[in-house]
Computed example of a mutant assay.
Amino acid sequence: MNGWNQFLWIIYPYIVITIFITGHFYRLNHYPFSWTSKSSEFLEKRTLRWGSLLFHWGIIFVIVGHVAGLLVPISVYQGLGISDEAYHMMALSAGGIAGLSTLIGAFILMVRRFRVKRVRATSSVGDRVAIVLILIVLFTGLTATGTNAVGQTGFDYRTTINPWIRGILTFQPDASLMTAVPVAFKIHILAALSLFAVWPFTRLVHVFSFPLTYLRRRYVIYRQRRPSCERKSDKTVV
């Protein structure tokens, strides 16, 4: 069992990190024109508008919440005078709203991808795998957080998952930190790792394509071309 824990919480994360980094560089160098979000807006707009709005706004707050909760040591919050009760209340309320919004948006996008004929016809295997994994990650995350709050288990991920992740990123891994973690959180983490493993081979790469040049580019001016008869009439001298 100890060997299995070593694989899941040390070896597997580093395998995923390796694939995530090298996969992006390989795709960018060998298939640069595939680095796109493959927008399907012209195929169907109504469902996309709601799904994309809920998902993208929600995921921004979900990411910010994960960074604040998993990468910031608990001592920082204690130093700022934020009590454990206040932190968990804020995390549950704000994180719950953001997570639910993202989940609903992802579900709408998944249904659209599988049900709308034109969108389904232009979808790749990577597109389908990505949206399904995203949905699993969101669902398991909300389930783990919800069951932990309702059950009042007293489990605090800031003393277990938090230092485990920081240990992975600083090359000081400690699989023993994950021993007391509830199964629901472990499933959520493994699902997230699997998503990161397939990330470089899907449309998710567009997350790293920030259109910063738009901030300094000149406006594009569109002029209507008048019919030739109108141009001739302008030259007519009355």
Rank of each mutant, 00 (worst) to 15 (best):
G96L: 11
H88A: 13
I134H: 08
I134K: 01
H30N: 15
R49P: 00
L80S: 03
P73D: 09
L71P: 06
V67W: 08
F20G: 15
R113L: 12
V76S: 02
L92S: 07
G141L: 06
F61A: 13
R118P: 01
T153Q: 02
S124D: 11
L138T: 05
R115C: 10
G79L: 02
Y87I: 04
F20P: 15
Y77H: 04
N29C: 11
I134P: 02
V76P: 00
I108S: 01
T122H: 06
S37G: 13
G146E: 03
L138M: 09
N148H: 06
S101M: 15
G69C: 08
G23N: 09
S34W: 14
H56Q: 11
I97L: 12
I63S: 02
R113E: 11
S124I: 02
M110T: 13
S123A: 14
P32C: 13
I108V: 10
T122M: 11
I97G: 02
S93D: 04
S75Q: 14
R27H: 10
E85K: 03
V67H: 01
A91N: 03
R113Q: 15
F55H: 07
H24C: 10
A68E: 06
K117S: 04
P32R: 09
N148K: 12
G141D: 06
L109T: 00
M110I: 01
T145W: 07
V129C: 10
G81K: 13
L142D: 11
R118M: 08
P32T: 15
D156C: 08
R112I: 04
I60N: 09
V125Q: 00
H56L: 14
M90A: 15
L28K: 15
V119K: 12
A144L: 10
W50H: 12
H66Q: 11
L135Y: 06
F25A: 12
R113P: 04
V132A: 05
T140S: 15
I108N: 06
S39C: 02
